[in-house]
Structure formats: structure tokens, C-alpha cells
């Protein structure tokens, strides 16, 4: 599954230390769990999908199949929220 996003847009968003995401273009804030923080931090750094997957596999106790399923679900949700087009 393609997990590339528009790095320029994500660079304007901020992730707080407490784990919330703020979109300065809309004023909406989102509460993130640690996995989401890791994904969005990678997006903000414009990291490649391969590096993102490798980082998630290294940091969290998850197998490849579950990771792909969770990434797909995450992408579906951020698209639904309008954060990714």
C-alpha cells in the first residue's frame, strides 16, 4: 500500500510532546497514539515508505502483516479526515 503523503503540507502541522496533532490551516487538533506519532513524525521528515515501515517494525512489537493492515486503516482514517488527499 502507498503511504506517501504531501510532505510540504505535513511540514506546517505540529505534533505536541503530549501527542496531539494541530493543523494550522483549519485549526483542528487530533489526539494521536504513539504509533500515529511515529508515522506522522516520519511524514513530516519526508521519510520514504520503506524507512517508515522499517522504523515501525523496529520500534513496535508487530509483524509485517499486522503492520500493513494497521497502516492501511490509518491511511483510510487520515484520508477520511481530509488530512491526506
Amino acid at each position: 500500500m502507498d503511504t506517501r503523503v504531501d510532505g510540504a503540507r505535513w511540514s506546517t502541522m505540529s505534533v505536541s510532546a503530549a501527542g496531539s496533532l494541530f493543523d494550522p490551516g483549519t485549526g483542528y487538533a487530533y489526539t494521536l497514539n504513539p504509533v500515529a506519532v511515529a508515522i506522522i513524525t516520519a511524514w513530516k521528515a519526508d521519510e520514504s515508505p520503506d524507512r517508515l515501515r522499517a522504523a515501525l517494525l523496529e520500534r513496535f512489537e508487530v509483524d509485517t502483516r499486522t503492520l500493513e493492515r494497521d497502516l492501511m486503516e490509518f491511511m483510510r482514517r487520515v484520508k477520511w479526515l481530509g488530512l491526506v488527499t
Binding site: 506546517t12 494550522p24 490551516g25 483549519t26 485549526g27 487538533a29
Partner: peptide
């Protein structure tokens, strides 16, 4: 929003 649509809370945005 209040019942008449007035802002009771808001957040600064930058677009």
C-alpha cells in the same frame, strides 16, 4: 458557538 452563532471559543489558524 452560542445559540445565535457567536464564537464562545476559538483557535487561531494560519492559512
Amino acid at each position: 458557538l452560542s445559540n445565535t452563532g457567536k464564537a464562545w471559543s476559538g483557535v487561531t489558524i494560519h492559512d
